[in-house]
Every structure is written in C-alpha cells, then in structure tokens.
C-alpha cells in the first residue's frame, strides 16, 4: 500500500493557515503523507514543490480573495511542466459564484468553510484512485 501524497499549500500572502493545517492533519490521520509548504508561496514555488515531491494532489488554501488568479495559475503551470496528472483542489473563503470558473480552469473541487473533513479526505482518496485507473 503506497500512501497517497498531498502537497498542502498557501498561495499568495494571507497568513490564515488554520484551515490548511487542520486539513493537513486530517489527511495525515487518514494515512496520507502531507507536505505543507508554509505561507506566502508563489504558484511557481508550489508547482516546483509538487513536482519534486511527486505528490498525487495539491490542496490550495486562500482566504484573501486572490483565489481567482492564484488557483488557475497553479493548474496552468503544472500543465506547462507536463505534470497535469497532479490534480489540484482548493478551499477557503470563496464565493459560490466563483466556483464554476475555478472548476472550468481545471481545479477539481473547491471546499468552502464548514465542509466536513471526511468529505475532503474521501474526495482525495477517490480522485487518486480514479487517476490511477
């Protein structure tokens, strides 16, 4: 059984990492290996880390409202680096009306405040399983 590897990243400048850290722990407790990048990561840094760490998924957390430019940028840079097999999901304070645009840009799922951790864990498990098939 190879553990699923997930990069949990904070793109942009906001310092609110409570959600990112709680999700990281929940994924750990579900048996996954989680690499946390820390704050203030540029999309370029996140993509580099994702590739070097050979993760299955990247989870992005943003609470400052900069998600519309940052999340799609990460997806696009992964693609440019030939690493589109690494799937991206996101979370944070994200208005409902922004979600379709993010999904369209290639973000696999967006989790807003109040999402049960179990839902996120299951999503990651299922997505990685599907990606392998």
């Amino acid at each position: 059984m190879v553990p699923i590897r997930v990069l949990v990243a904070k793109p942009g400048l906001d310092g609110h990492d409570r959600g990112a850290k709680v999700v990281a722990r929940a994924l750990r407790d579900a048996g996954m290996e989680v690499i946390y990048t820390g704050l203030r990561q540029s999309p370029e840094q996140i993509v580099r880390a994702a590739i070097q760490e050979d993760v299955d998924m990247v989870g992005l957390s943003c609470l400052s409202g900069a998600h519309n430019s940052l999340f799609p940028k990460v997806v696009q840079l992964l693609k440019e680096a030939g690493a589109e097999d690494i799937q991206v999901f996101g979370g944070g304070v994200i208005p409902e009306s922004d979600i379709p645009g993010l999904l369209e840009a290639g973000v696999r799922a967006v989790f807003t405040p109040g999402t049960p951790l179990e839902e996120i864990v299951n999503f990651v498990r299922e997505s990685v399983k599907k990606g392998d098939a």
């Binding site: 750990r28 407790d29 840094q45």
Partner: peptide
C-alpha cells in the same frame, strides 16, 4: 494511521526557487 506530515520543507522554503536545489 501510517500517514505523516512532512514539515522540514518549510525550513528550506527560501531555497525552493533555486534551480540547483532538489528537495524531497
């Protein structure tokens, strides 16, 4: 759980943009 939080990378985040450096 067998899972892990791999946090050492944070301490080297300044190096993560350096093309000469690979961190795993």
């Amino acid at each position: 759980s067998g899972g892990a939080i791999l946090g050492d990378r944070i301490r080297m985040s300044a190096l993560s943009a350096n093309p000469n450096v690979y961190i795993r």
